[in-house]
Design a protein around this nucleic acid. Structure first.
Length: 341
DNA sequence: CGGCTTTGACCTGCGC
DNA sequence: GCGCAGGTCAAAGCCG
């Protein structure tokens, strides 16, 4: 599940020239920007002040509108997610089919699925989308894509695709362990240094249930060393571990304690991360990647919290402010040049 | 002693 | 067919 289909990725940062023409007193605003350095008479100063106030009001209104859009976005996301979960639960194959019959086949399927997930992740980091990709249900058209002819092959692929998710977890930069605390118990069975990333990738299997097929890969982000990228493959075929047990068992290096997570937006990549560096604070949202999509995120409290976190992170981020200012000023200059022509 | 992590070896897919 | 890279196995060691 992802936001790509829901989000307008055009990064329309209040810089649409047409909207400026229609809504804003553009001549005044532009002249204000240009003539800021000059000494202006009192009359003009009053005019420019009023123009600034007007501009401020307009930006505030735009900000409010964007917040409302974000809220609607979250609601749509939750609706789609619930639909996906419903679809997955309906189409989940028997447990025997869950196990890969042969390694060769599995690896091939995985590679395509991971590739699609990676693609969406890259898109995410570059197009201002939310960065939790729960499953590669790209485009949301998997329900209609399977036909009777290829039903023997496609459902399996789609199932595998749908059970791959990627979660970004922010940890302390000094924390060298590749532990993602998501509420489940994991057993590490391998570690490998991959070519494209000097940081080792750790391989985990779910050890909460003996036959649980879920695997997890954890690797540090190359761009941001404090960011862990956890890739989950498969679905847990056992009930969620109880919270108390999870907390109690977290002492021994196992990844069991609940996540003191908070939605945060990093400046380099506007993605939702689980910020393990922060203390949990009410209202405590999702405690793990799986639960976050199924229960807690469906509550209006969490949606509101998410919106607030996003808005606050955006407004606090100087990089985002600078980019916003550059985009707006660039557009204004561009519009100015167009008008000149 | 059981369960976990570590780590080198091995297996497999893929590109050339 | 060969080499590379990713993924997995399994023995050894550690820890409570």
């Amino acid at each position: 599940m992802e936001y790509v289909s829901l989000v307008d990725t055009s990064l329309d940062l209040n810089s649409n020239p047409l909207r400026f023409i229609e809504e804003a007193p553009k001549k005044e605003v532009q002249s204000n920007f240009i003539q800021l350095e000059r000494k202006v008479p009192v009359k003009e100063e009053i005019q420019s002040t009023s123009a600034l106030v007007e501009e401020l009001n307009r930006v505030n209104a735009e900000n409010k509108r964007l917040t409302e859009m974000l809220t609607v976005l979250c609601e749509n996301y939750n609706v789609l997610r619930s639909q996906l979960m419903e679809y997955m639960s309906k189409n989940a194959p028997p447990e025997e089919e869950e196990q890969p019959p042969a390694v060769s086949r599995k690896r091939k399927v995985e590679s395509t699925a991971v590739a699609s997930t990676t693609t969406t992740t890259t898109t995410t980091t570059t197009t201002n989308n939310i960065g939790i990709n729960n499953g590669g249900n790209n485009g949301g058209n998997s329900e209609s894509s399977s036909t009777d002819e290829d039903s023997c092959k496609k459902p399996r692929e789609e199932h595998v695709k749908a059970t791959i998710s990627r979660v970004y977890v922010r940890t302390e930069a000094s924390d060298t362990s590749l532990i993602v605390k998501d509420g489940y118990q994991w057993r590490k069975y391998g570690q490998k240094v991959t070519r494209d990333n000097p940081c080792p990738r750790a391989y985990f299997k779910c050890s909460f249930a003996p036959i649980c097929p879920v695997k997890k890969k954890v690797q540090r982000s190359m761009e941001d060393q404090s960011l862990l990228v956890a890739t989950y493959e498969g679905e847990h075929n056992h009930p969620d571990p109880p919270r108390t047990e999870a907390t109690a068992a977290s002492n021994r290096g196992s990844t069991l304690n609940p996540v003191p997570c908070s939605a945060s937006l990093s400046s380099s990549a506007p993605t939702i991360t689980l910020d393990l560096t922060k203390k949990p604070k009410p209202p405590s949202p999702a405690s793990d990647a799986k639960n976050s999509g199924r229960t807690v995120t469906n509550t209006p409290e969490f949606q509101q919290f998410l919106v607030q976190q996003m808005a606050s992170s955006l407004t606090k981020d100087p990089g985002f402010k600078a980019a916003l200012a550059a985009a707006i000023s660039g557009r204004m200059v561009q519009q100015h040049e167009i008008e000149k022509w």
